[in-house]
Write a protein that binds this DNA or RNA. Structure first.
Length: 971
RNA sequence: CGGCCCGUAGCUCAGCUGGUCAGAGCAGGGCUCUUAUAAAGCUCAGGUCGUGGGUUCGAGUCCCACCGGGCCGACCA
């Protein structure tokens, strides 16, 4: 009875993975692993919540592969690793999907449809692809608790978010302000940068105007300013000059003009430069408003200094309208210039714009140009073409438009953010001071509010009578039950009594969905209303892992909220892989048609292959050029080799009846042959290196080391040990390879969870009391008794010399089958054992040594002279090979007893007679008989050929049934 | 415009704190081994290590500039 179940030579990894998955379904080792570590110290992980209203892609597999690898590793180290799934459920992407489905195109249409119904659909839409996410998560072997995920729309989650905002409010860090954003006047919403990028159109025709701003105290003198958006001119409140820029006053006809010296080329017709005007002299000067009737209250129409002013375009003077430009707004706030809208939310001029009132701004542009020209204020107007943003949904030209927004004063804790960021171990390391560090250095206040519907409502109530503001931090303050739906529109019905006697109403906004996700460390536990211990024990996280695009996303919001609320970092280690692109390095997109579906890859090559490819192909931080061919290569180069080593062991262990569970005497490792000791030393060395690398969160080098170990086990240990598995050393060899493979299965378990478990289970069959799954074992410790650096070095040296010797044979055209008398090593002698390995690998009788060459370089040289005896043996080995081919052609299995007949003239015939025993062994035959010419017996299979010019004939006859070999599964 | 990453054999990529580092795998040609039965081993690449400077006894490996690619951000008044 064989100890091991036979291993089919052909393996389909996708099928194997499904088989293992079914075992997991039945045994639930995920749950068992958690139970097993229930009392162990926690290793805390935060799962970044994806939005489930989109399909998962290959890039999601990437991050999840790294998450799972590190989590399994930590668990095997003995930590308790909880992994709770989460879903990001709010936000504009969800709303857009629902709008699309309902055929709605604006906020007005949503409100006509009804916000309650709209939000109901949003809630449903979030779950749209949840099944696909769960399927993929499961398929890639990512163990994640998806039974009780946190969801950002759950009332307790929202209540925790409210609590956090109240904390921020109490510290004075939550305030209302203006912000300029790209704004679609038709949809009546601001757009995110992401959306903005989808709508840029090049070569958009527009009009650039250069306008005279007459100085109050010098009406004959004008400052020239230039703009491509004439519609912002009625909103002008100031002119900005650059403190470093040199301005000049020029005379042209009766008038004087002021502009930057570098921009004189803008002038039309002859002019005379009267002299320089320092920027400092311009600052503070007042000019006449272009549209006095639209003048706002306050100290407007002044020249101010601003560093952002350039001289690459225009006049070196920037027309400033605070409500219609980001820089403009900041400048106005800084300089005390009034900010007021001249354009309404619908993109049409307000009544104070006089003749333009009611006109859409883009339609008003030509009218404004006409009007300015009529009043002598236009210096010149030029058609231009530039890149301009349009709404990607409705194609309306976007406006930069200041809206009332609520902000978190993140700048107040900037120093703390920088300090805590320093404490984080980033992989790749440059992210800390690079992308993340730079982002924090140029930190601005967080624009928290969104004028939308499906999101966590901003918990601020304002009294219309006395303007009192109140931030609400719990449901109880509103008298709401714990299970109340706190979403719009219901929450907007809730009024609070103001001290002045008025009824406070909630502000209409919801908050940035990114705030929701950054709140997960505390909100997933409904902290501080519940689970205070649970939160305290799981913050900061030991480890998070998301793709690089989360730097300014989730990585930032986690950190920002943690610092704002707790003055702590949110995580200690971040692994952040780069992007996934197609095989040609192109970004995957629907329009390019180069999207690679993860499930297709998984079906074709399996999850282990894809995971392993992600770990080993490039270092984290470089892009992943994924293609089916590259994943297929992993199967060939790694998984199949691993599988074949396993298959080899099982075949021979069964063949020689070795049983690891039997109390058979196995020599202690130190007593085994040098190849065994070498393999065990390689395993120990690799174990140490893998642990060291994984402790540094470097899965790439760890896995590359493992790949090298697998390759060494196959292409050196097994290759050189094959004969030993059939001889006296079979027990030691089987025990060694068995032990090595079991260790390798555990070393590989975090990375290729399916095949490693398959290996483990197979190898454990004959053993009692073993964990049923490799994922319930401990990560291998370094067996210090096995370490043997000297042996590793000596073997490495030996293998270098082997390569050189093989090259010499190649040049001499002597097949390896042909034995040679000696090899001479110019270098330090090997131990007798290693010398035997060398001799066997090179097929030489003897290893000799010579002094090292003067340059100190070790060399090797084969004695290429053939004696008759060596030549005879070479012939016999060739004949043996031909016999093997005949066996194979006859379809005989290993172990099938046979008789061989050989007919050959001398000198080949003599050689056969002289080495009949060797030939018998080579052919695994019971008997080899030489027959004389013309006396060929009747045989089942035969072959003819020549060796070195001598013709031969081989015949083969079976004897009795096959011995007790395992049957193989088909060809 | 700014920040970061990358630019090494036809392709994909290794090369840690400067001194056998000029490498591996794949593709292609040749050869070999084999009761792991097509999986494996060996061999063949004359590559200005993007370009140009610099530091150094010595630089893919450090510094500067430039060119090209990517990502992120800013800007387009």
């Amino acid at each position: 009875m064989p100890a091991f179940d036979p291993v089919p030579a052909q393996v389909s990894f996708p099928e194997l993975e499904q088989r293992i998955q079914r075992l997991w379904d039945a045994e639930d080792p995920f749950e068992a692993a958690l139970r097993q570590r229930a009392q162990a110290p926690a290793f805390t992980f935060y799962e970044g919540p994806p939005t489930a209203n989109g399909r998962p892609g290959v890039h999601h597999v990437l991050a999840r592969a790294f998450k799972d690898g590190f989590l399994r590793y930590q668990q095997m180290l003995g930590r308790r690793v909880e992994r709770r799934a989460g879903w990001d459920t709010h936000g504009l992407p969800v709303e857009l999907e629902v709008e699309r489905r309902l055929g709605l195109h604006s906020k007005a249409e949503i409100e006509r449809h009804g916000v309650a119904a709209f939000n109901r659909l949003c809630r449903q839409s979030v779950a749209e692809f949840i099944g696909e996410w769960e399927q993929l998560t499961r398929r890639i072997g990512f163990w994640l608790d998806m039974q009780s995920p946190y969801r950002t729309y759950d009332p307790p989650y929202i209540e925790s978010v409210w609590w956090s905002l109240k904390q921020i409010w109490d510290r004075g860090w939550l305030y209302q302000g203006y912000r300029v954003s790209p704004y679609c006047p038709r949809c009546q919403t601001s757009l995110s940068t992401h959306e903005l990028n989808q709508g840029y159109r090049e070569d958009t025709p527009d009009t650039a105007v250069t306008v005279r701003f007459r100085l109050v105290d010098e009406p004959q003198t004008s400052i020239l300013a230039w703009t491509t958006t004439p519609w912002t001119l009625p909103g002008n409140v100031g002119l900005a000059v650059g403190p470093e820029i040199e301005y000049v006053r020029v005379r042209q006809g009766a008038e004087r003009l002021i502009l930057a010296r570098e921009r004189l080329s803008l002038l039309q017709g002859p002019y005379e430069v009267e002299g320089p005007v320092p920027a400092s002299e311009l600052v503070g000067r007042r000019y006449q408003p272009l549209y006095p009737q639209a003048a706002p209250e306050g100290d407007a129409f002044r020249v101010v200094a601003a560093t952002f002013v350039s001289t690459t375009e225009g006049t070196g003077v920037v027309h400033t309208a605070g409500a219609y430009g980001e820089d403009d707004l900041l400048l106005c706030q800084q300089e005390g210039l009034p900010v007021r809208h001249t354009v309404g939310l619908d993109g049409c001029f307000l009544p104070m714009a006089g003749a333009f009132a009611g006109l859409f701004v883009k339609d008003a542009d030509p009218r404004i140009v006409e009007d300015l020209e009529g009043r002598g204020l236009l210096y010149r107007a030029d058609p231009i073409r530039h890149t301009y943003p349009f709404c990607w949904r409705c194609e309306t030209p976007l406006l930069y438009y200041a809206l009332t927004s609520w902000f978190i004063r993140t700048t107040a804790v900037k120093e703390r953010l920088l300090v805590h960021n320093q404490s984080v171990q980033w992989v790749p390391a440059h992210l800390r001071d690079g992308r993340m560090g730079n982002w924090l250095e140029s930190l601005q206040d967080w624009n928290l509010s969104r004028d939308r519907y499906w999101g966590t409502p901003l918990p601020i109530w304002i009294c219309p009578d006395c303007d009192a503001q109140r931030c609400v931090g719990s449901f109880a303050e509103l008298g709401l039950p714990a299970d109340a739906d706190p979403h719009k529109p219901f929450i907007d019905e809730v009024q609070l009594a103001c001290a002045c006697g008025g009824a406070m109403r909630r502000v209409p906004q919801v908050i940035d969905a990114w705030y929701d996700s950054g709140a997960m460390p505390y909100a997933q536990w409904h902290y501080p209303f519940e689970n205070a211990d649970r939160f305290a024990g799981a913050h900061p996280a030991d480890f998070i892992c998301e793709a690089i695009d989360q730097t300014r996303g989730w990585f930032f919001t986690l950190l920002a909220e943690s610092v704002l609320l707790f003055d702590q970092p949110a995580y200690r280690h971040v692994v952040s892989p780069s992007h996934v692109v197609d095989g040609a390095g192109q970004k995957m997109s629907k329009s390019r048609g180069n999207i690679i579906e993860p499930l297709a890859l998984l079906d074709a090559h399996g999850a282990d292959a894809l995971r392993w490819w992600f770990y080993t192909t490039v270092t984290v931080g470089q892009e992943y050029r994924v293609s089916p061919e590259r994943i297929a290569e992993v199967v060939k180069r790694f998984l199949l080799i691993l599988w074949n080593v396993q298959s080899f062991l099982v075949t021979y262990a069964n063949l020689c009846g070795w049983d690891p569970g039997a109390a058979e005497a196995v020599p202690a490792p130190a007593e085994r042959s040098v190849l065994d000791r070498w393999l065990l030393a390689r395993v120990a060395q690799t174990t140490a290196e893998v642990r060291r690398r994984m402790d540094l969160y470097d899965a790439t080098v760890a896995c590359r080391q493992l790949a090298q170990l697998v390759d060494d086990a196959s292409t050196w240990y097994v290759r050189r040990s094959r004969a030993r598995f059939r001889g006296e050393e079979a027990t030691a060899a089987c025990a060694t390879l068995h032990q090595a493979l079991r260790t390798m299965a555990r070393l590989l378990a975090p990375f290729v969870p399916f095949v490693s478990d398959a290996l483990w289970r197979q190898l454990s069959v004959p053993l009692a009391g073993q964990p049923s799954s490799v994922h319930l074992t401990d990560y291998p410790e370094v067996r210090s008794d096995d370490l043997d650096p000297e042996l590793l070095e000596a073997m490495a040296r030996l293998r270098r010399l082997v390569e050189e010797a093989h090259a010499q044979r190649e040049r001499a055209r002597l097949p390896l089958r042909q034995p040679l008398a000696a090899v001479t090593v110019a270098g330090a002698p090997f131990s007798a054992e290693l010398a035997a390995v060398l001799a066997e690998e090179l097929n030489v009788r003897e290893v000799r040594y010579a002094p090292v060459p003067a340059d100190g370089r070790e060399t090797v040289s084969l004695d290429l002279a053939l004696t008759p005896e060596l030549r005879d043996e070479g012939w016999v080995r060739t004949l043996g090979r031909r016999g093997q081919e005949l066996r194979r052609a006859a379809g005989l299995r290993p172990g099938q007893p046979i008789d061989f007949y050989v007919e050959a003239a001398d000198p080949l015939g003599a050689a056969v007679l002289g080495q009949a025993e060797r030939l018998t062994t080579l052919l695994f035959a019971d008997r080899v008989q030489r027959v004389t010419q013309g006396a060929r017996p009747a045989v089942e299979h035969s072959a003819e050929g020549t060796i070195d010019g001598t013709a031969y004939w081989l015949g083969l006859v079976r004897r009795g049934p096959a011995s007790s070999l395992p049957a193989e599964d088909g060809p």
